[in-house]
Structure formats: C-alpha cells, structure tokens
Design a binder for these strands. Structure first.
Lengths: 256, 256
DNA sequence: CGCTCAGTTGATCAGTATCAAAGGGCGTGG
DNA sequence: CCACGCCCTTTGATACTGATCAACTGAGCG
C-alpha cells in the first residue's frame, strides 16, 4: 500500500493526511518542508489498529518499528511487582509513541490502548535511513522525543510538589492544550476516554481519592465530564488552580 | 586552547581524556570509533567551572552551547510559585546536562551545582555540524538524551507508587550504579555530595521525613554516609528493598 | 433483566507534612 | 587555639492528606 496515494489532497493540504496530527505538532514549532512531509508519508509501512484495553508493546520488547498514533488515546505505564501500576504518559494523535526504541532498542516499560488506537507503522530501517540522510528531519524527530521528556518532567514535578487537586486540574489543562495542538478539539472542550482508574494511576493516587478529587473539580464548577467528553467551564480559573503554564510544551516557532 | 592536545594519551587510551566519563558511558552501549571520539574532543570549545551552590542555567535561558559534566554533581530542578523545589534529575560525570537545548532552544527548568562542577562547553553551532555530518554520533547523542528520559521515568514511577523508604533506597542504588559506569567509584562505595535537603527535594519528601528515612536505612545497616562518602553495606538487600532493577539504565551493548 | 464495569460514598487508618527546637561539625576570625 | 556562627542533621509532637476497606449506585449491553 502506498500511503502517499491514500492522502486525499496534495502536500499543499496535508491536514487531510493521516499524519496531520504529527504535521500540526511539527509545524507549530519549526518550518517543515513539503519534501520532508512527503518523506515522512512515504516512510509509513502500514497501518495498525489496537483495540481498547490491549497492550501495544510490553516491557522487554525489542520492536523493529516505531508507531505514530493517528487516533485514540494510549498510556505508557509500568507495573511494579506488588501489582501497582503507574502511568507515565498519555499519548494523543500526532504523538510518536515509541521513537526511543530506535536508539534504545529494548523497551523498559509497556503501553496500552486506553481507547481503540490507530497507528502508522514506520520500520526502524526506514527511520534509520532518514537519520542518515535528513539531518533536519532527524532533529525534529529528536525534538519530539524531548517534548515527551519535558512533559514527563512536568509530571514528576507535580507528583513531588503538587497536591492531588492541583495535579488533577493540571492533567485536564495539559490534555486539553495538547489535543488542541493536534487539531482534536479545543483546550476547554475535548474527548479524553480515560477512566478514573487510569487517571488515578497517572496521578499516583488511589482510585477512591482520584474520584473525590475529580468530583471536587466538578463541584467547583470547573470541569464536567459526560462519557468521554470533557468540558472546562472556566479555563482561566482551572489553570490558576493547577498553576498551569504551557512553557514546558515548547510551543515557540523557531529554526531547530 | 586545543582540547585534543590536552589529552594525555592518544585516543587509544581515552580514559585519560577529560571526556572519559562520556566515552565510558557511550562505549558501554555501542561501538564508538576513534574518529568519533576525536570529533567530540575537537568539538569542545572551552572548560567552565561552576562553584557549589551556583546555578548553571535558569528556566527561560536560551543557551548557545551545551554542557558536558566532567566532574561534580549537578541537579536539574524547578521551583514552583509557592517556593517548593522539585529536583528532577541528578547529573554525574559523563552526563550531557543540557543537550535538549540544541533542539528545544528555551530551557523550561533550572540547574544548580550541588558540588563544584567542571564542564566541557560545546557550541550549538559545532553540535549542529555534528548532527549534519555524523549520523551515528548524532544517534548516540540522541540516545543519551533518551537515557536521561528513561531515568526520569523511573523516578516518576517511584514517586507515584513507591514508599519514601523504597524511593530513598532506590536513589542510592541508582547513583551508585551510574557513578560506577562513569568510572567514579563502585556501586556500593561512592561520593554523593547532596545534602538531605537536596535528597528530600529529589524524592518529593519534606526535609524531616527524608532525614528519618535515611536514618532508618542507616539503622537497618544498609547505607552509611560520612560526609560525602556513601557506603552500601549490603547491596543485594538494598536493591531488593528498593526493587531496583537496572533495566532502565539500558546497559546493553549493541549497534544503535 | 441481570451482569459487568465505572463511578460514588462513608468510615477508619497510615504515611508524610508541618512546626518547633536542639545537637553536631567545620570554617573563620579574633 | 578557641569561640562564634552557620549549615546540616536529628528529634519530638501534632496535623493533615490521601490510602484502604467496604458497600452501594447507575449505565450500558447481551
């Protein structure tokens, strides 16, 4: 299957590309040439769908490909030997979920599909060619791995020094901001199909406490959830409560 | 100053190079050609010393260079508006402390010298040339940023799901393992000049609780500290207590 | 129409924070 | 060479955040 042919428009209109989430993410931060976008589109080997609840990869795997999330919500996690699970990242459309495997080879954690996930599959060999031939594109891929790392650092800071309420508020702020960038909703109105159990595992809380914390955000009139849909009534207030500042998302456009 | 000339031996014996910590770190994971090592040595612009207690860079800085830690202990941190500080990483000899600035440009956190730190300074422009001309070396640099990210993920998991005692034990296990790789002591006998305040900020604990936790490791006869020197009496036992498994340090040697 | 899974609520408990103060070790200056 | 001061460490008492245990509710689905 030729992925380029499956694009509805031309590269003049790559929003219609299956890779639009990634392109929006990259173009927000640096100039991406049409040539580079085509190179990425051509590098796609195939598509892959993983049903909700299934693992995408597991700790110890040595994948021969990298996955770009096109649709759905995925969670990076590790399970400790006492059975406790800690989610270390949520990934949304446009996120390259296991680009680190290109150089780290063995994965030290697992990933699960929170909702049904559709991926574009890139063979390591193809990405390796890109890393040999296209320095700028390589730097952009490097950058997106560092963006993930930056988000992870923010989670770590929150885990250590923010209260449960602040962390919870912060998560809703962040997911909204990231989904907006990926072109999937707005910062105050988006879909986030994680259960309270997932949220608890991401925030380092017990299920019961996560429930009470989310409820108190609801009672304050800040966040409402109906099924997957999250609506933030007063984004400014929620961001103040969470002390959310989007600096760590590195939204500046500049040559990289 | 020509850094290559300052190397005592030739590249046959690069342990004597100021960059030995980095070379040991890289060579442990992949073949590094003499040519590549020389390229790195030649890329050093100058040395920089930062006194203990001074900041190395601050949130919002846009450095034009990257720093490789040659000696000393540095801490990556963020201060929240209520004054709380969270340390998100310790860095030891051989760590490239702000390689992410090469593509992220603006720094979203600060870094301080816990003990006096000596750095090799690499101009962004020089590293950019490496990223244009040396794909394999670029992948190795990419890899070391991902190693940091992997360690950070382990901290996040611990913060969410490990007790204070386990986290503390884990920190001592990790620092020992990393210092051994960098050729600075052994996993059970090393120097770690962080104060209990620093350790508390790294583990997301209060100073008082960090003190009690460290004391209980001491009372169990697992860890003893005299000034900067840490000695681990029973490494196996400490690792079991911490549930420390070094997989996340990615110590496998393989082509990257 | 009952089963299952997500969400909700109450009661109690444990781990860690906070507040307060005292005890060492080391360098500096007298 | 001693004393003072400062920073780091230690200890005690109390408060509070969030965990755990135990039900119960409600919505979707076969």
């Amino acid at each position: 299957m030729n992925f380029r042919q499956s694009v509805l428009g031309t590269s003049d209109n790559p929003v219609s590309s299956p890779l639009s989430g990634l392109f929006l993410r990259l173009r927000r931060r640096d100039h991406v040439s049409a040539d580079e976008e085509i190179a990425l589109i051509d590098a796609v080997d195939r598509e892959l769908v993983v049903e909700a609840g299934q693992d995408i990869f597991r700790e110890g795997d040595r994948p021969a490909h990298c996955l770009l999330l096109l649709d759905g919500l995925a969670a990076r996690y590790r399970t400790l030997d006492d059975g406790a699970r800690q989610i270390s990242a949520f990934h949304v459309a446009g996120d390259f979920v296991d680009l680190p495997s290109l150089t780290l080879k063995m994965l030290d954690h697992s990933m699960t599909a929170v909702s049904t996930c559709r991926f574009a599959v890139f063979k390591h060999s193809t990405l390796r060619h890109i890393s040999e031939d296209r320095p700028h594109l390589t730097r952009l891929l490097w950058m997106v791995t560092l963006l993930d790392s930056s988000i992870q650092r923010e989670w770590l800071v929150g885990m250590g020094r923010r209260t449960a309420l602040q962390r919870t508020a912060h998560l809703f702020c962040e997911i909204g901001a990231r989904l907006e960038i990926a072109g999937r909703g707005t910062a105050s109105d988006f879909h986030f199909p994680a259960t309270q159990n997932d949220i608890a595992d991401a925030l380092g809380l017990s299920l019961v406490h996560a429930n009470r914390t989310i409820k108190s955000l609801k009672d304050m009139g800040l966040v409402s959830r109906r099924r997957d849909a999250v609506r933030i009534a007063d984004l400014e207030k929620l961001r103040r409560l969470a002390r959310f500042t989007p600096g760590y998302l590195h939204l500046e456009f500049e040559p990289r």
